[in-house]
Amino acid sequence: MEPILQIKHLTHTYGVGTPFQRSAVEDMSFEVREGEFLGIMGHTGSGKSTLIQHLNGLLKPTSGQVLLAGKDIWAEPKKIREVRFRVGLVFQYPEYQLFEETVYKDIAFGPANMGRTGAELDRCVREAARLVGIRDEQLDKSPFELSGGQKRRVALAGVLAMEPDVLVLDEPTAGLDPAGRENLMANIRDYHRNKQKTIVLVSHSMDEIAQNADRILVLKGAHILMSGTPAEVFARGEELLSAGLDVPEVTRIAMALRDRGLPIDPAVYTVEALERQLLALRKGGAAC
């Protein structure tokens, strides 16, 4: 099957021709497959934010291409708005973009811009609200009366209501407490599972990426450092650490156990998997 997004030799340079010239993204190539959950991790300044703003055409590549379903998104610059409807981008701290009098109207902003009206508009607003756990009676409230976590859900619903083929999330759980983080990630997981839609998740939290992504892209200094399944990526724990990146705490425990001579599979990155391995080791050890 053709990948839904193809990024080919993408480079983005800021301040061309000034002394401040600097490439935030340099010759990046990768694909996003239809229906997958792709995690992107990297430091602040690794080029993550610049990269994802190319996926929906908010930024134009200095060189290289972004293909959506096989078509260059900049082939017809006049139609770039349609790309933004198909690739929904949720920014960091999206609650700061809310502006309407009611939650309902705010969620409706995106789909209304697409030209949806009447029953069709109503359907996608209500469905998006349901997906993020906003109750019907909250729809008529002002978004500014809600709690921080709820505001963020409304902002997320505002993008989901456009029913994009690809959902790109930039640090969706930043600043939330553990319960709020888990709830929001559960919403996103459910959405992914039930709608079979493609998700690109950018996060600093290794644990969040480890628990959700099918495939991981690690960025460093405007380049792709590594890519692969979580098991493949976290198996290279030492490399990640020496690149100044975090690894999940479980990976660090597994690495420390290997240092102590226990034969732990380097690809372990969840507590459950490590527990299983250790229990298997004990049984094996008892047999000796």
Binding site: Q53, F91, G110
Partner: peptide
């Protein structure tokens, strides 16, 4: 900086 960010966010929702 904030204005830039909000503009991008609204553009992502199809603002023109």
């Amino acid at each position: 900086e904030e204005t830039d960010k909000i503009m991008s966010a609204q553009k992502a929702r199809g603002a023109d």
